[in-house]
């Protein structure tokens, strides 16, 4: 165990059971299938032994948002404990198809956005298709999906006439998949604000940041993607 690993495991002893994390967790707020960070984190961790099967499945509902870490007054590394526990579940049982689907959201984004967006959006909102999706892949029928954009942010940026700034102040903008495929307007206003303030905006070549993969516990694949990014 290296010092990082050790600090994670030891941090569970700092837990004073105040439940502040549970009060702040967005997942515990909407479903009681998830008992909350305190239970699945520092408490369940005591029952996770190397040689034994994982004691509870509910930790899989953790989205990895890290809100619990932010608010915990004693510095328990809850989200990291959860991420490792989820990785353990995957190790024992393999990666569900659902996780592969949602984990590679950038592929879906690339496929769905563009002129074909209305068709893709129709498919994503079609109750029958969603029902099949739920049955076959385990993707909740009612879970909202963002709508694909008819154009990507990067394609807009290529055509966009840069404001003449005569400045040497440059900003490299990492816009992320969501801005590129679903909400290009966010990127457009960001560029407008930056240029208005005299910055020259540069778009670096970029791939998936790996967050969806992390959420879906595809961490080994994530390593590969992070390298691309």
């Amino acid at each position: 165990m290296d010092h990082i690993e050790l600090s994670l495991v030891q941090s569970l002893d700092h837990c004073i059971k105040c439940n502040i994390c549970t009060s702040a967790c967005p997942v515990a707020a909407v479903t009681d299938k998830f008992p909350g960070p305190k239970y699945v984190g520092p408490q369940a961790q005591r029952f996770r032994m190397d040689s034994q099967p994982t004691p509870d499945d509910s930790v899989d509902y953790c989205s990895g948002c890290r809100v619990c870490n932010q608010v915990c007054p004693t510095g328990v590394r809850i989200a990291e404990l959860n991420a490792r526990a989820r990785a353990q579940i995957v190790k024992e049982r393999g990666v569900p198809v659902r996780n592969r689907l949602l984990g590679y959201s950038w592929l879906a984004g690339a496929a769905g956005s563009g002129p074909q967006a209305p068709l893709a959006n129709f498919a994503m909102q079609n109750p029958l298709l969603r029902q099949i999706g739920e049955r076959v892949f385990g993707v909740a029928r009612k879970g909202p999906f963002p709508s694909f954009s008819r154009y990507t942010f990067r394609s807009w940026f290529k055509k966009h006439h840069k404001a003449r700034t005569n400045t040497r102040r440059q900003v490299v903008y990492f816009h992320g998949c969501s801005t590129n495929y679903y909400e290009p307007r966010i990127g457009k206003v960001t560029v407008a604000v930056l240029e208005r303030n005299g910055f020259d905006v540069i778009l670096a070549k970029q791939g998936c940041c790996g967050l969806p993969l992390l959420s879906m516990v595809l961490s080994t694949m994530q390593n590969a993607t992070t390298t691309i990014t």
Partner: peptide, 9 residues
Amino acid sequence: AKGHGTTHW
């Protein structure tokens, strides 16, 4: 701040 604190206790 490190997190929420004694206000919540």
